[in-house]
Design a protein around this nucleic acid. Structure first.
Lengths: 245, 245
DNA sequence: GCAAAAGTGTTCCGACTACACCCATGC
DNA sequence: GCATGGGTGTAGTCGGAACACTTTTGC
């Protein structure tokens, strides 16, 4: 075991005092341009003033970690169906430059959360002070602190969740075609995970996609049927070892 | 990230000050009695003095979360191949009674870690003060704080990891029979996940179990071949969507 | 008609299930 | 021999991969 420093109670160091931050990795998918997007805000104070960062905040008295995560998001974005999931806790010393100011100052620890939201519904709240914007994953700016690492970790989770849970329907509109669904999977997971027609029949066989009977034309080609995600039909499949691929 | 505090500085509550604890969920499997075991220690100070709890500690200055987790384990147990994995961070207010003493006191947050260790190799360190013991999962005592919830979360993780990663070989002895391996899976996952002979051929086909040629007799019956886990042969399969069932 | 996109069907093949059966040992 | 556990084989079945084909639209 690394770093095994043995203890004599007298030489033992004092307990660290922490401020705890929450940082949210909020993904969306721009279905028009087939890009995975992530929500970033520009820091309006030191440290890292003017750098882009994940939307986060420090936890206040009487507030739970989740409360803090939802609070900072409510200040930045208005979406429906926001469901945050805890990602990971980053807590080594010296991850935040504020720790260096004074050796007896607070440590900074970050608990990260993850969500996937609907791109077109998301309404960014411009507060006139700090910037806020969606960035495509392929064109990220430099990020403050260790936010690149957090973001990378979140992207892994996104890909896993997409394969195992029905989170795709959190980003698709209420009604969607199977082509839309396939396109979404391709955008996030990359090409070559499955043939369209096999993807199609597999999903339909699972039985939680309800055909609305409505057809939608998009330029040339045969009109596509619009489907709706049937949460009730999916319920029994919940926490089964299900893969959508 | 942290510090994203907008408007109305006057009405906003102060930042919470935290002490950060790490709590370890250490599992093992008693292969003689086919029981899943968990390591518990008796608290030797308030709060919850005399209650059983997960082995944990508070993080000290200059120490990373992981360092703290390894430190407390080194005080309690001697094992080889200890690999800790972060589980979850529990951080709501009022989860620790120490918070109530004084409304301006610290909040207590717990980052939990998970590991699976070899039962027979594990040497518990009796320090003459606090108790330490393995408990079978089926006969747990009441636990301090929210440790029951943490333990439950860890057990979920154990079952998942067992199906997807080769952690079984962290608990089996260096040399083991396929019957041992099957027995271990049955103990943790319960009966009825697979037929023995199918389990056997699937595992062997994966190609990372090396037959040592040695035979082992255990009472009546044909002697069993002893196998060794071949980490090199497994390496290419790492992070493939692999299921051992 | 022709291109384009949606939707259906079919064949091949590998993987898992469920068993039946053979093998080597203790007693 | 026979009970006991280890180990091998096989027939049936299910599901995914690949790809050809049909349908319905715009132009």
């Amino acid at each position: 075991m690394p770093g095994r420093r043995t203890k004599k109670p007298d030489t033992q160091r004092a307990l660290a005092d922490f401020k705890v931050g929450v940082d949210n990795v909020i993904f969306s998918v721009d279905t028009d341009q087939n890009r995975v997007m992530v929500l970033l805000v520009m820091r309006d104070k030191a440290p890292h003033l003017g750098d882009w960062s994940l939307p986060g905040t420090l936890v206040r008295e009487g507030e739970s970690l989740e409360d803090a995560a939802y609070r900072v998001l409510a200040e930045k974005i208005r979406v429906s169906n926001l469901y945050l999931e805890q990602l990971f806790t980053f807590g080594g010393p010296h991850r935040d430059p504020r720790e260096a100011v004074n050796s007896y100052g607070s440590r900074y620890l970050s608990v990260s959360y993850f969500a996937l939201v609907r791109f077109v519904d998301a309404e960014l709240i411009a507060d006139g002070v700090s910037g806020i914007a969606w960035f495509p994953l392929s064109q990220l700016p430099d990020l403050a602190f260790d936010h690149h690492e957090i973001l990378h970790y979140g992207y892994q989770r996104l890909r896993n969740k997409l394969a195992y849970s029905p989170i795709a329907f959190d980003v698709l509109p209420e009604l969607f075609t199977l082509g839309d669904l396939y396109q979404l999977y391709t955008t996030v997971l990359g090409e070559g995970f499955a043939d369209y027609s096999n993807f199609r029949s597999r999903l339909l066989k699972l039985g939680f996609l309800a055909d609305t009977g409505i057809k939608q034309s998009r330029g040339a080609g045969r009109p596509a049927a619009l489907y709706r995600f049937d949460a009730d039909a999916f319920a029994p499949l919940k926490d089964k070892p299900l893969v959508f691929i």
